[in-house]
Design a protein around this nucleic acid. Structure first.
Lengths: 132, 132
DNA sequence: ATTTTATATATTTAAATAATTAAATATTTA
DNA sequence: TAAATATTTAATTATTTAAATATATAAAAT
């Protein structure tokens, strides 16, 4: 999902996607519509392709690009799940930090140990933690 | 929306958001949980704040951060609208490129003029177009 | 048919730009 | 004072870009 966020975090790439709304375009059309160099467009198209946001189909010399609707749908589902889990919209209010009770916690013991052993991403990577 | 995509396109920032799931955290807790320097965390928090993804509340020396649920909800709506407009999920198949009929169009006349006068983003900026 | 020649796209390379980071410093508050 | 956070600065790293080159396909010429 982070690669999709990165892919979408560029105005030229967003514009390419918008150009592809409801139509296919040859790469040469995209080049001239956007107004960047051919290699730059090729680069952006590659990033969009790798992110699963567009399809490509070669016919003769020309490569035709279209939106990858399945990829976009999948991305939508991921964002939905991510935000749902994250913001827990059904929950009431966030649990107060232990620093509210004891403002010296950070100094005394670094931080809330429970918090820091939490697994924070899908790849099950445990967040780094300074040892004392 | 692009600033939110940019904000989300960084693993540390995604991890900060995940840490804030259902709880508030003081900046010092976040610093130690993520394991980056204090200025680096301050920088990431600023970007998340500016993107409208988190709230901050100062109490004494400590700044407490929480998720901005309204901001997240708003982002969700924007992504929903963006993808809906983009992929036009109700539509059938993309309109074929004029290059399908005439593969020399790119060379002969540059590109489909109609396509290139299309306004391609919310800010009503007309896409650049090479003059012949 | 085979060899040119031109066109469309991809890749490589190098330069410019932007993002990330830690160190140093400043600001705020206890 | 000291602690928590923010800002500034400078270095590193990543991204974006155009120029040059490579590859693939098609059309033209031999």
């Amino acid at each position: 999902m982070i690669n999709i966020f990165k892919a979408l975090g560029d105005s030229h790439r967003l514009n390419i996607l918008k150009l592809l709304t409801c139509r296919e375009m040859g790469a040469c059309e995209i080049i001239q519509a956007i107004g960047l160099s051919q290699p730059a467009i090729a680069h952006h198209l590659k990033i969009l392709k790798q992110a699963g946001l567009i399809n490509s189909e070669k016919e003769g010399k020309i490569v035709f690009y279209t939106l990858n609707k399945d990829g976009l749908r999948e991305f939508y589902k991921q964002v939905d799940g991510f935000l749902d889990e994250l913001a827990c919209f059904s929950c009431s209010r966030p649990k107060p930090s232990p620093l509210r009770q004891n403002p010296n916690l950070c100094t005394e013991m670094g931080f809330d140990p429970e918090a820091c052993e939490k697994i924070i991403d899908e790849e099950k990577i445990i967040i780094k933690r300074k040892r004392r």
